[in-house]
Design a protein around this nucleic acid. Structure first.
Lengths: 342, 342
DNA sequence: CGGGAATGTGGCATCGATGCCACATTCCGC
DNA sequence: GCGGAATGTGGCATCGATGCCACATTCCCG
């Protein structure tokens, strides 16, 4: 038998259940939703009837009438990057548990795609959106239309939406101090952006670690690159050529790939000759040899936090004041960092 | 300013646009959707009006009335596994291009969660679902309710839904022959399941390669394990203890982690002492040293295929006959495989 | 120049569930 | 035994967009 004859499938409605159970449609609605009055007997009868005829409520009708929806928009930059995948996984887990659905959109970090997605989510009348923003305009537009917004991982400029962030400064500080404690004083920092809170925070932590330990930091050791493993590799190359660093910190998992590739290519002994560490622990970092010392930002938990926060907001459980959640970052020392050479 | 005062936000409706443009609601609907008659002049006027007052159509109302939806359900087992993430990314890309939305649900490979998700998707009245099935029941129920289904990556028993598969047998055959050509005759196969088409196909390819090359395969070298890196590690340990294999093939990326961990732990030289290869290329496999020889199943493209197939089906562009798409698998030779020792 | 086709536009019912109000019972305490 | 609360249940309008039909023009060709 091929696909069932096109969709002439007539799905049972509340009316059908009502008839089957011998009550009115209104009662069916109440009985199935535990909301409002309905005697236990009737409730049982209705549920049985619904079950019997295979009734599945129509979300579209429900949403339309009740001006709500249980779909949540999730707007991320790159699903293929394990950071975003983990974030989405955490979000989905929490949403599913609360019987919400996740509409996932990949905006590829492109402002136009991001706005397009925002528009679509508005059309869907989602009550809330979780976004790793590319542009401040996107969260803004959503909020202006009464959609609750939680920004994940970063914030742009001063916004007025809730936000869940890794404790970037503390994490980067701890990581940098770990290297300083090993005797490193010439540490390179591979970083792609510093305009968003993410990069800015990590850089701040890097700076603070030097300051706190009475070290004068050489600004030239901050190697600005772009968000791309190959670019990071080139930048690492220049960094190594131009400066005598004994350790490199990469600001995220993508840049770390480039740095590692370059070091392997040069047959540099890690950590004997150079130590390598990264912010944002992802699985491959413990598979390579030596395994990388990293800062784990509990990405899945961050996703869960975003979802919990958003749902609380939607349910009106939170005071109006904007909420900022900092997810603690945890240093994981592995084999790629060691005492400074000589 | 905190969150905008709760959602008293009144969004403009088709009526508002009609008033603004001085036409009837019906005309607005036609003008905005290029469907049916509408003079260019009126169309322009309506579009301008809609733009001016910031009209965004309500999908719920549209879906309800027109008994369609542009949301597609995507049911996968584990978003944190790069295989599924890539699959989802490919699907999303294609759906977004066609102005469809992706509702992503992680079922954790759990039949109960899977059925739950199917029910939710029925409630949403999605026209189609892409699923990496855990149970044959799930696609079945969906189809029985008139929802188009595409199974991705595997099929269970004989189903009657469209399916997109990696060419498992050919891929595994090519990979095994690569090892045989290097002189290996005692090759271990680390595999978790053989009931689904995926494992069955890969195992069949493994067998066929031996047969085609006149080798007698030792059935004991097929090491059955469970879908979990740690279990795979234990199984690898036993395999190495009990048999003198010179090469190991892992049936997927997760098992490969376990195998690699065990080999590294034993300080086995790869590929000098043992060659290691895996089906399902994922990024870390080219980051480790030596990089792993793998079979790339073009996961993202597989996702795109699923979406294209489903959309074509929804649009009724396909003959009733069930379609089976095989995505070619490609052998990527890297450093982890070499001539048999001695 | 008349009539039927072609082309636009408006009116109205409708998709399915639910919010709200009115009405019907039952239950108590005085 | 009676009035008012407490508790259930049904009726009906409604959310917003669209499908369908009727009606109004315009067009064109015999």
């Amino acid at each position: 038998m091929p696909q069932p004859a096109e969709p002439p499938v007539r799905r049972p409605t509340v009316q059908d259940v009502a008839r089957e159970a011998g009550v009115s449609p209104s009662t069916v609605s109440r009985a199935l939703h535990t909301r409002g009055y309905a005697s236990p007997a009737v409730r049982a009868r209705v549920q049985a009837a619904a079950e019997r005829i295979g009734y599945v409520a129509d979300h579209n009708a429900r949403n339309l009438r009740s001006r709500t929806s249980t779909s949540i928009g999730v707007l991320i930059s790159d699903l293929r990057n394990p950071f975003y995948a983990d974030l989405a996984a955490g979000i989905e887990e929490e949403l599913r548990a609360a019987e919400y659905q996740m509409v996932l959109v990949n905006d590829n970090g492109d402002p136009a795609e991001e706005m397009q997605a925002a528009e679509t989510l508005l059309a869907m009348r989602v009550p809330g959106v979780i976004v790793t923003p590319v542009t401040a305009k996107c969260p803004q537009v959503l909020q202006d239309n009464g959609v609750h917004v939680v920004c994940a991982d970063r914030e742009l400029g001063r916004s007025n939406s809730d936000v869940v962030l890794s404790d970037n400064k503390a994490g980067a500080l701890e990581l940098t101090e770990h290297l300083i404690a090993l005797g490193h004083t010439r540490i390179g920092m591979l970083i792609d952006e510093t305009k968003w809170s993410t990069g800015a925070g990590r850089l701040a932590g890097f700076r603070a670690a030097h300051l706190d330990n009475g070290l004068v930091m050489n600004e030239d050791l901050i190697a600005y690159t772009s968000f791309d493993a190959n670019a990071a590799r080139q930048t690492t190359r220049r960094l190594l050529n131009d400066h005598e660093v004994t350790a490199i910190i990469s600001a995220n998992n993508v840049l770390a790939q480039g740095a590692l590739a370059e070091l392997k290519d040069r047959r540099v002994k890690i950590p004997r000759q150079i130590s390598l560490a990264a912010y944002d622990d992802v699985p491959w970092m413990s598979l390579v040899q030596p395994a990388l010392t990293t800062v784990d930002q509990s990405t899945v938990e961050m996703g869960r936090s975003c979802a919990r926060l958003l749902l609380a907001r939607i349910r009106g459980e939170l005071p109006a004041k904007r909420r900022i959640v900092k997810v603690p970052a945890r240093l994981i020392v592995r084999g790629s960092t060691g005492p400074v050479p000589r």
